[in-house]
Design a protein around this nucleic acid. Structure first.
Lengths: 194, 194
DNA sequence: TATGAATGTTGTCACCGTCAACATATGGAT
DNA sequence: ATCCATATGTTGACGGTGACAACATTCATA
């Protein structure tokens, strides 16, 4: 098959190639010229699909949050589980999502998307995701517990699963042998805090 | 005072200006040309003090870890406190260091420094800092506790304080009113886990 | 005071993101 | 089947960047 003038699905290919690069490199190393080179396409072709590099990364971050919410939602609303069981499961699902989608997760928490106003979609999706966490954590406390206490619990849980995810992803915990065992340990301890 | 040929202490000025920029921007936006402009110096002058931008950032990361260890060490070895008191205090000091030195802290956990082998000094200092955490956490468990359990506890504590620090620093927790109150709450809960 | 080292400057190169102008392919209306 | 608007890909150009080499100035000290 000879080289074609049109790529076929350059948009999707750009996203895939970016995620591929993000597995090893940091976001700031992503560039249209490099992506174009990898996809055997001219240097300006990516501009037909994304306004700018920042824009491409923003879209991928959004995509990540959508997948994230998709993963958390059923657990947060799982009727057959008790509040604490939901809380436990949500933590486990959270960290496993981060591990399986590390390129997405890293990008999702990139500081550049949280300068208020510049990426409203990302901000909104992020708030939605963390709403699920707050909801699930709060439900473990008595209904008449102080709102402050509910927030504190939710924030501590969020910080913990986020910290676990980051330290795994960024390679600081390569020595941990049984990741699933640790994740379960950590989430059980968090549930026990209540 | 007329413009001088020599700056005086360009090296320190570069470090300060970089930290100033890091308060708002991300590491990838730091550049020698921009720094030179801010310090009213020619574009190549920074090369007399740092081999490359990467190198400048690496030095600042090292500096951050040295300060970090300096802050943690006395708490970790504070003889007048019980194991659990040390654990509690260490957590509080950890997060407060991150808040007060947010530019340093962000850089210290930049992924670029943990590609094994490229920044051995940073890697070593990081390991040293986290050794203090592990030591302090482990001491709260019975001496004959399984090493795995000690590691699990230390890792969970580390993940939690790291997550708290990151979420504060990256602006995701701007709505939290009394930061110190939350930090104390979180660290007390972590101690209670033991 | 003279001289080598430290520090600052200018010139140059290759790379990058972005836009404009142009080329080609695609798909639907006729 | 043909025509044309649109989508997509290409090339050229511009200003920005990091990095290095060659050159200029100042400093330290013998």
């Amino acid at each position: 098959m000879t080289k074609q003038y049109h790529h076929g699905d350059l948009r999707e290919a750009l996203i895939d190639a970016t995620l591929e690069m993000l597995k090893n490199d940091e976001a700031h190393l992503i560039g249209f010229r490099e992506l174009a080179r990898r996809l055997d396409v001219s240097r300006a072709a990516p501009y037909r699909h994304f306004e700018s590099v920042e824009n491409l990364l923003g879209f991928i971050a959004e995509e990540g949050y959508r997948k994230f919410i998709e993963a958390l939602e059923p657990v947060a609303h799982h009727g057959a589980l008790s509040s604490k069981e939901r809380f436990l499961e949500l933590g486990i699902v959270y960290v496993n999502f981060a591990l399986k989608n590390s390129a997405h997760y890293r990008l999702m928490f990139d500081q550049r998307f949280f300068k208020t106003g510049t990426f409203p979609k990302v901000e909104h999706l992020a708030a939605q995701a963390f709403g699920l966490l707050k909801l699930t954590a709060s439900a473990c406390l008595p209904a008449d517990a102080a709102p402050e206490e509910k927030n504190q619990l939710a924030n501590l849980a969020w910080a913990s699963v986020h910290g676990i995810s980051k330290l795994f992803i960024d390679g600081q915990w390569d020595q941990v042998q049984d990741r699933q065992k640790f994740i379960r340990y950590a989430c059980e301890k968090l549930v026990a805090i209540v």
